[in-house]
Amino acid sequence: MNSGAKRWLLLAIVVAFVTSCFSASFNRYYLGVAIDVGISTIMAVSLNLINGHTGQFSLGHAGFMAVGGFTAARLTLTLSSSAPPDSAQGIALFVVAMLFGGLTAAITGLAVGLPSLRLRGDYLAIVTLGFGEIIRVVFQTSETFGAATGLTGIPKQTTLFWAMSVAAVTVYVVACLVNSTYGRGFIAVHDDEVAASAMGISPTRYKVTAFVIGAFFAGVAGALYAHHKQVLKPDGFDFMKSIDYVVMVILGGMGRTAGVIIAAVLLTVLPEFLRGFAEYRMIIYSLLIIALMLLRPQGLFAFQKKSQTRS
């Protein structure tokens, strides 16, 4: 990774910061949607590391998001009396909560990644789906996390700045990882597992790494989501939510970060434009997905990839 990319990252964060300084004058609806876009981007790009670059197939990404969101929100709710949301301590607590959420999700990612050593393809898909559902059921029955009601009254901490800069960091980290010498291993595992291990690349290590890092960012996204919507309900993290992100990754073109970002933006903003159609909205949305897959099966935004030779 060259310093050029670092400069871009810095610039993205500065722009996010400057823009969020004016956020008070924004329409709150657009602001909310912009934050949604940031969160979707984090989710899609981190899932792309698992599904796209490493070639695994996870259907449980919403589960990681739930773990991160619930643990982070539980932390801020427990400590919010000593650190009011507007104060510096409040913001510090939010940052700690984000990292904590990411960490717990990463640990869960490790637990889910381990079975992936033995399973592949559809079997892995169903196991990750299963983990996602188990996570949901556990939160749904746990009184600590509010059971069926979920957690409410979570302080509003997620600003456009946080959503956008975490998204920038996610893109940066995933891009650096995949483009580094170490990271070539992900693509090697994706392209041909047997050949990769013959070359001395341990598929196991790469798969688990992908799961752990992907889960970490999903957990951070969950924390952002919790402090954005201010309410978390276990119901919201069923496997349909995971499917939403899988659609983004596949529509964007597996393993193509730029395409996945555009797909994340598009699929978050598009339903908003369709609101005018009320009850026809989801019908149109589903038809669009079918049409897009039929017309652009390689992914809507499968741009040319940087000199990567693939078989």
Binding site: A12, T19, S25, Y30, M164, V171, A175
Partner: peptide, 24 residues
Amino acid sequence: MKRLFLRFLILVVTTGLLFTSSCS
């Protein structure tokens, strides 16, 4: 390529600016 998507990120953020409220 990195440029492309970072530039894209900025695009997203700046379109936010254009969204300034216009409600009656």
